[in-house]
Design a protein around this nucleic acid. Structure first.
Length: 289
DNA sequence: ATACCGACCTGTCAGC
DNA sequence: TGCTGACAGGTCGGTA
């Protein structure tokens, strides 16, 4: 479901609402598919931790966790000072959530109905619950000590010359290169199509065949599309909502994605859809070369 | 090393 | 009404 702008929106919403809260206990459903780390390890890492910050890395949501001051009573004999020191030195961790295609993170009251496909429920000290719901189970949950790095570069942070080198000599279609998270992280099917349209480049063009000028335009359009989408809270297609249950509005700005057979907004030529690397790709045959 | 392709899952919607 | 097939915002691992 979510690409960079949706994940950014969700992470910001979570950061605003659960930072400084503490995870008291964790329930994990029996389905194993979404767990990259063992359930016991995830629960043990989360329980008793304070959420210090929630942010985004590529399409991953990252919870920075710290051992709660005063601890969970383990040991019990440590002084407050020792506990605080132990917390800062040893009890940092990161909880990584990848939403896959259909994953959602919701904050709700304990009384709220537990919907089908709820795989994890974290009870917070504030009395609320943080729940992970994922029907298709393409999502992934894992824990790391610290310094989680999914690889690739952030499109909104990378410099232009570094962006140009990412695609040098690659024979793969440019669309496929844009989706490769080991190169550029966070761009998915919607934003790849939208960026290529704005840059006037066909999705099937070999990356290596793009001129310096093509790549410069692409660099600009990728960043422009992502920034606009973040500003509008992402694209709501089917059931996407952010952490506050709000829909995004960037779907109203889509110029090619999901518009097969409709006229191009620039030249009225009908938008085409082809399958490339197993994914639907939408483009204007006249505007994109 | 690189590049395709199916597999992983469930849900929804169009068409018959 | 119900069945079937296509399709869905993502990644992996196997194979060529």
């Amino acid at each position: 479901m979510p690409e960079l702008p949706e994940v950014e929106t969700i992470a910001r919403g979570l950061d605003k609402r659960v930072t400084d809260d503490t995870i008291d206990s964790v329930w994990i459903g029996s389905r194993r598919q979404p767990l990259k780390s063992p359930a016991t390890e995830i629960a043990a890492t989360l329980e008793g931790k304070r959420i210090a910050r929630v942010h985004r890395a590529g399409k991953h949501i990252v919870f920075d966790l710290e051992g709660a001051i005063g601890g969970r009573g383990k040991g019990g004999r440590a002084t407050a000072g020792q506990t605080r020191q132990a917390a800062s030195l040893q009890r940092q961790a990161q909880w990584i959530v990848h939403l896959g295609m259909t994953g959602r993170m919701v904050i709700c009251e304990p009384a709220a109905e537990t919907v089908k496909h709820t795989h994890l429920v974290a009870k917070l000290a504030s009395g609320r619950e943080l729940r992970f719901i994922d029907p298709r189970m393409f999502g992934k949950l894992s824990v790391h000590s610290t310094g989680f790095d999914p690889g690739g570069v952030e499109p909104l942070e990378v410099a232009e010359d570094q962006f140009l080198t990412l695609f040098r000599g690659r024979k793969t279609p440019i669309k496929s290169a844009l989706l490769n998270q080991k190169l550029l992280r966070g761009v998915g099917n919607i934003y790849a199509d939208e960026s290529l349209f704005r840059a006037g480049i066909r999705p099937g063009r070999r990356a290596a065949s793009l001129t310096r000028e093509d790549l410069r335009r692409l660099y600009g359009s990728v960043r422009e599309v992502l920034r606009e989408a973040i500003a509008l809270g992402g694209s709501s297609i089917s059931d996407y909502v952010d952490a506050d249950g709000e829909e995004g509005f960037f779907q109203l700005q889509h110029r090619v994605y999901g518009r097969e057979g409709e006229p191009c907004l620039a030249c009225r030529t009908l938008i085409k859809r082809v399958v490339l690397v197993g994914r639907s790709s939408h483009y204007c045959p006249k505007c994109q070369k």
